[in-house]
């Protein structure tokens, strides 16, 4: 397997009490897969993402990428954050070039690469602008271009569209699907939005809190260019709602 997560646990100490953010999580991810980690807050989905990306040390277990133990963040993978993490003092272009600067490329080569990815996300007219002059959706596009510019093998996305309005969000979901299809990256995508997960993922890993663990793994066998209002889509969504016990028949205790 490309990414192997084996019996991973992660404990935090809080006020002298041990809090289990992840408890014995195991998961295999294959190369080129679009995987969504879905769950309510506190279920450890971001912790799991950070563990695979190498930002967080795990308490026990092992995470391997391509057969190698993950010890820290690697330049081969990049992470997209909910608040974009763009550097406000740099233009769009120079933000995109951040990861390229240490490669000792000629200026022209560097601009060629950044131009390519800025075009890819449709921001060619804005490459001399500063992030604060752009809308949230455009800022996240810059972050995507910056991530792709270093040609990573894996893209980690931590609720990247969480701060966007519904319409922009849908556009960005289409955009990331298109990019994923074109560049065949492995994408691990954290979200708490069920429909977003159904729309994007090859597989959805459903997580639950206290302690953070995997509750179910669902394969989404819909084709790409998905329709959000067809029966198959609803079926999968209902299935997930069932797993979360959010359907009405389970909520009957509220009436007592």
């Amino acid at each position: 397997m490309y990414i192997e997560v084996k019996n991973v646990s992660k404990d935090f100490k809080q006020h002298g009490q041990i809090f289990k953010a992840l408890s014995d999580v195991s998961l295999d991810i294959s190369k080129g897969e679009f995987l969504c980690l879905l769950g309510p807050s506190g279920c450890g989905k971001t912790t799991l993402l950070n563990a695979i990306a190498g930002f967080d040390k795990i308490s026990s277990g092992s995470v391997k990428i391509d057969g190698q133990e993950v010890k820290g963040p690697s330049a081969r993978n990049t992470t997209l954050f909910q608040n974009y993490g763009l550097l406000p003092w740099r233009t769009v272009q120079s933000n995109v070039e951040l990861g390229l600067e240490s490669r000792k490329l000629a200026k022209i080569e560097m601009h060629e690469i950044s131009d390519k990815y800025i075009n890819l996300v449709g921001l060619d007219a804005f490459k001399k602008n500063y992030p604060h002059q752009l809308s949230g959706g455009m800022q996240q596009r810059v972050a995507i271009a910056r991530a792709l510019a270093v040609d990573p093998e894996i893209l980690f996305m931590d609720e990247p569209f969480g701060a966007l309005d519904v319409i922009t969000r849908a556009n960005m979901q289409d955009e990331i699907t298109r990019i994923w299809q074109e560049y065949k990256k492995t994408i691990i995508f954290v979200t708490h939005d069920i429909e977003e997960a159904v729309y994007l993922a090859d597989r959805i890993v459903i997580m639950a809190p206290n302690p953070g663990r995997i509750k179910a793994v669902i394969k989404v066998s819909l084709g790409r260019g998905r329709d959000r209002d067809v029966k198959e889509f609803f079926n999968i969504r209902d299935n997930i709602l069932d797993i979360f016990e959010m359907k009405n028949h389970d909520a009957i205790e509220y009436f007592l």
Binding site: F55, G72, P73, S74, A75, T78, T79, F81, N83, G85, L87, W89, L98, G99, E101, S102, V150
Partner: peptide, 27 residues
């Protein structure tokens, strides 16, 4: 902290992190 994460993400050295991230961010 997100800027420091970005620096780690793009494998900046300590010195680069100071000059390219920390100094301008705190300016």
């Amino acid at each position: 902290k997100i800027y420091l994460k970005v620096a780690q993400n793009f494998a900046l050295t300590r010195f680069e992190t100071l000059t390219k991230i920390v100094l301008p961010a705190s300016f």
